[in-house]
Design a protein around this nucleic acid. Structure first.
Lengths: 209, 209
DNA sequence: CCTAAACGTGAACACTTGTTTACTTTCGAG
DNA sequence: CTCGAAAGTAAACAAGTGTTCACGTTTAGG
């Protein structure tokens, strides 16, 4: 069965997410699964291979999720009047979903923690961390706000995305995790209203000129 | 001389901040300093003792810095009219300084990275990480905004503090680090103006009622 | 039923880990 | 100058590392 192979990287991920790759031994992983470490090498050639498998799994899942989000974009893009409005609402909804994803998804949550622990080890991990969690999402929001005509899109994007990023960490250490998730939603909602409000002002100013 | 003892934990911190405590060997630390690992044990009883020394050093420095900030508070607190205004300005200035501190200070910057890597290892590290970087600062800002009469102080605090927290990570991976620092300042400045503006509205609304 | 592949075991491998020990060097105070 | 403590060295230590290998066990299909 390929079931064991799957169980191996899942438990490995859990351990990597808590202690970091180097601090977890092959014996630890095997022990957690109730098998000997020799058996592990029937499924993976290396300890590194388990790690690589996890990374690959995320890259695959990320590609799938990206497809889901960008695909139904065709439904809007007409209606230039309300384009911005719905676009910001879509961003907000997507962001809420992303927060749930990175904090609660049984794969994404430990993956985020693992990446957090590995980000300074090598350039490749730094790149992935930035791409998935820091500069990447920030840049996406910046681009979107910029294309919607907002001034200072970087600042606005930072203010919009940063609460999510902060609350990932707060969530990890919080007792009442659901309260943190609710706070994240509230922050996103508040910022959505600010942005739509300011967009209205921009629009009316444009009409005057 | 106690100079060697100091150089040991400084280089150890640098290594811990990059690879994590467990992934750094005593030989690594000694090698980096050009001495044998045996010599290391003339200065520290343990590998752990080096780590503990670093933590203690930060706790001490943190106490000193906290004293600096809270001490000249006495100068304001009269002038109830402009109390809020100056208080928010002081928060902003202090926050800017904190950003420089956690990103550029030769001790605080690697310490932050080290804590980031150790946060999931044990409760103690989780506590320190939250206290110094996540829930701690967030709670402080929340309390301040709450005591100034703002509604939804948690959301406002998250929106105010989160950009700093996000930009710590962006800073770490950025090529143009000074641009990130400038962006952090801009975000803080923008949020300061929002808060003072909304406070004005609150005030006039109060006068009407 | 037999076979062959897949899965798992446990001992061995060379190497690294943190720590200790016996011995040498360095060096400042009396 | 001398002496003794402080600082550093090199080797040894048991324990743990990732990896391999020869050997059982399970299991599914011809």
């Amino acid at each position: 069965m390929g079931q064991t192979k799957e169980k191996i990287w899942i438990t490995a991920l859990e351990l990597f997410a808590q202690n970091g790759y180097e601090a977890v031994s092959v014996s630890d992983i095997a022990g957690q699964l109730g098998i000997t470490k020799g058996a592990l090498y029937k499924h993976y050639t290396n300890k590194r291979a388990i790690f690589d498998c996890i990374i690959a799994r995320m890259e695959q899942q990320d590609a799938e999720r990206a497809g889901e989000f960008t695909l139904p974009e065709g439904t809007l893009a007409q209606m230039p009047e309300k384009y911005c409005h719905t676009s910001l609402e879509r961003l907000t909804a997507y962001s809420k979903e992303q927060f749930r994803y990175w904090t609660q998804d049984p794969f994404a949550a430990p993956f985020r923690r693992m990446l957090t622990l590995e980000q300074y080890r090598c350039d490749e991990m730094a790149r992935l961390y930035q791409q998935y969690l820091a500069a990447g999402p920030l840049g996406c929001v910046t681009d979107l706000l910029g294309s919607l005509g907002f001034d200072h899109p970087q600042q606005r994007a930072a203010v919009f995305y940063a609460p999510m990023f902060l609350l990932y960490s707060v969530y990890d250490g919080a007792e009442d995790k659901e309260a943190v998730a609710a706070l994240a939603d509230d922050c996103l909602e508040r910022e959505l209203q600010r942005l739509t409000g300011e967009q209205e002002i921009e629009r009316t100013n444009h009409k005057k000129a």
